[in-house]
């Protein structure tokens, strides 16, 4: 079979691909920001010496990390309508699922980051009269975040790749855009190749960017 890419015009991009691309980016951004905020709280809970904080957090994180993302997507798509007692769309469900799912992964990175900051920094902050909360927000967390920046970025690249799994509930993402276009023009083979190429370019550039940042950070230390 011969490959023929001639049908892939800007009109095709506009009407099929662009919509999916925007959704994939939005989903990544929302899950990243929401996941980091929620993940930071989970990490702080997990490091707490109060068992009623650390236990639920570690249960949540460990559970989500032992289940395939596809199953989590399916679970949320099944359960959210049951809880809200009304149907919600695949897209909204994806936003909620990815935020909660990513939080589990970001929290583990954040926890490692907090542990990477020496305990003496906390003591130094406290010796100056800063409260626990102030020490965390001005001294420990900024350092933890900085130390873990490369890992956060790597995790976010994985997140962007993972957004393609909304295939399981049929949300209109980048992959879906390519698939529908492929079906319409009866050129699925070409479409999958272009999709692979586009994802590659995006993720590869992001990972090069991450390496750059990693080296910059190394110099400062």
């Amino acid at each position: 079979m011969n490959l023929d890419f001639s049908f892939f015009t800007s009109a095709v991009i506009k009407s099929f691909i662009f919509k999916g691309l925007i959704f994939s980016f939005q989903l990544t951004a929302v899950a990243m920001i929401g996941g980091m905020i929620l993940g930071t709280f989970l990490a702080l809970m997990r490091l707490s010496n109060k068992y009623y904080l650390s236990l639920p957090s570690s249960f949540y994180v460990n559970t989500l990390r032992s289940i395939p993302l596809v199953m989590v997507i399916l679970w949320f798509y099944l359960l959210i309508p049951l809880i809200l007692k009304r149907p919600i769309g695949a897209e909204l469900s994806a936003f909620i699922t990815f935020t909660f799912f990513q939080a589990a992964y970001y929290s583990e990175i954040m926890r490692a980051g907090i542990l990477s900051v020496s305990k003496r920094q906390m003591a130094a902050g406290q010796a100056l009269g800063l409260t626990y909360r102030q020490c965390m927000s001005y001294v420990v967390l900024p350092q933890a975040f900085r130390n873990m920046l490369p890992l956060f970025m790597t995790q976010t690249i994985i997140l962007f790749q993972d957004t393609s799994l909304v295939y399981a509930i049929g949300a209109y993402d980048l992959l879906k855009g390519f698939e529908i276009a492929g079906r319409n023009f009866n050129r699925p083979v070409e479409m999958y190749l272009i999709a692979a190429f586009l994802y590659f370019v995006i993720c590869f550039s992001l990972s090069k960017f991450t390496k750059l940042i990693h080296q910059k950070i190394k110099i400062i230390h």
Partner: peptide, 21 residues
């Protein structure tokens, strides 16, 4: 009020513990 107390007691550590960021 520990923070208040500590703020009046200056402390210098073995490893300096400046905030590197």
């Amino acid at each position: 009020d520990l923070p208040k107390l500590r703020s009046r007691v200056g402390m210098v550590f073995q490893n300096f513990e400046l905030f590197p960021h």
